[in-house]
């Protein structure tokens, strides 16, 4: 069964360094209400709900079940959860809608990094035999990738600084640091503060709808023309860190190369990763890359990838884009990558 599926609404919270005065569900709930209000739907109208989060961030087992209180999940609703970025929850919801099992889906993601130390938390996703016992933190691994790019002549420190500066010059009111941010000192050389994402808590939600339902709910739906995700070998030393074949393959399968896009929302938490992604996705100089500021402007863990899809869709809703690419990543050094191609109806 082939059905057209669209992103019909997007909402997000501010991304804040600390949200200690609210619980996860208290942080998430206003975003859920916001996204539903944009469509006029109530939680009871939603056919399928899927979420992305990680218990490791806040160190609370099964915290996603408490977050479900915010969608009114009792009596039980049709729902699912991925311990991944919400972009992969959107993938699951998209498949569900394609099968015809539901006509609408609510997809949300949230992350509270403030209770823990996210650089250390992320070491726990690494190969437990050969890598995790060394506790290499997320910045260290990204720095190895950045140095490989510098050695290959693909970028240099000033070019990386320019990516950080451009990202944070966004007018996105949801960005965490805004305006000029100094390059700062080395965190792990060659990456400086300005090359690294801000650490923040936040939540994101989108609503998907199929066919005519999408047109009922949104003036200009962002149709998902293609969606695919691919992963690379587990061992960092097997990979060419200067390239992202998994992104390229996902983009190809999603149809990204069939026609040019005008906008790309890339999930590149570290400046050097934008260099890799631009090349893998063959983005020309005329493509608007990360008008939202991307993950260098706001990086709520587990939600920043879904935010890329939401931001791209919102530009189509507002008539600022006709064909946009959205990308999400997971794991160290762009380990796993998802690409969505979104289009608005012709104007």
């Amino acid at each position: 069964m082939t059905r057209d599926i669209a992103v019909v609404a997007f909402a997000q919270s501010d991304t804040l360094r600390s949200t200690e005065e609210v619980s996860e569900v208290e942080m998430l709930m206003p975003v859920l209400h916001d996204v539903l209000a944009r469509t006029g739907l109530k939680t009871a109208d939603i056919g399928f709900t899927c979420s992305g989060s990680s218990d490791y961030l806040a160190g609370r087992a099964f915290s996603f079940t408490l977050a479900l209180d915010g969608v009114g999940a009792w009596p039980p609703i049709s729902e699912s959860h991925v311990e991944m970025d919400g972009a992969w929850a959107l993938y699951e919801a998209w498949v569900k809608l394609r099968t015809g099992d539901a006509d609408t889906a609510l997809v949300y993601a949230y992350g509270k990094s403030s209770p823990g130390s996210v650089r250390d938390v992320l070491t726990r996703q690494l190969d437990p035999y050969y890598v995790a016992p060394l506790w290499p933190d997320s910045v260290a691994l990204a720095a190895l990738q950045a140095q490989a790019l510098i050695d290959a002549g693909e970028t240099d420190e000033p070019a990386l600084a320019a990516i950080g500066a451009r990202s944070r010059a966004t007018d996105n009111p949801r960005a965490q640091p805004r305006g000029p941010v100094p390059r700062g000192d080395y965190v792990v050389r060659p990456l400086r503060t300005g090359d690294c994402p801000p650490i923040g808590d936040g939540a994101v939600a989108v609503v998907l709808a199929a066919g005519e339902r999408a047109r009922d709910l949104c003036g200009r739906p962002a149709w998902i023309r293609g969606l695919d995700h691919r992963i690379e070998a587990h061992s960092l030393g097997v990979r060419d860190l200067t390239d992202s074949p998994s992104t390229r393959l996902a983009a190809e399968r999603a149809g990204a190369f069939e026609r040019p896009v005008d906008t790309a929302e890339l999930h590149a938490p570290f400046s050097a990763q934008e260099v890799v992604l631009r090349r893998a996705l063959k983005l020309g100089g005329d493509v608007r890359v990360n008008p939202s500021g991307g993950a260098l402007a706001a990086n709520p863990m587990m939600a920043a990838g879904l935010a890329r899809i939401g931001e791209a869709a919102a530009r189509i809703h507002r008539g600022e884009s006709d064909r946009a690419l959205a990308h999400a990543t997971s794991g160290p050094c762009l380990q796993q990558n998802l690409v969505a191609v979104l289009e608005g109806d012709p104007r």
């Binding site: 250390d120 506790w135 290499p136 490989a148 050389r189 960092l236």
Partner: peptide, 23 residues
């Protein structure tokens, strides 16, 4: 094949003083 200078080692990492991560 690539490296990154870690001037502030974190708990659990192989060396207590500054070192380079290397592949």
């Amino acid at each position: 094949t690539t490296w990154a200078w870690n001037h502030a080692p974190r708990r659990g990492q192989p060396l207590a003083g500054p070192f380079a991560w290397v592949l």
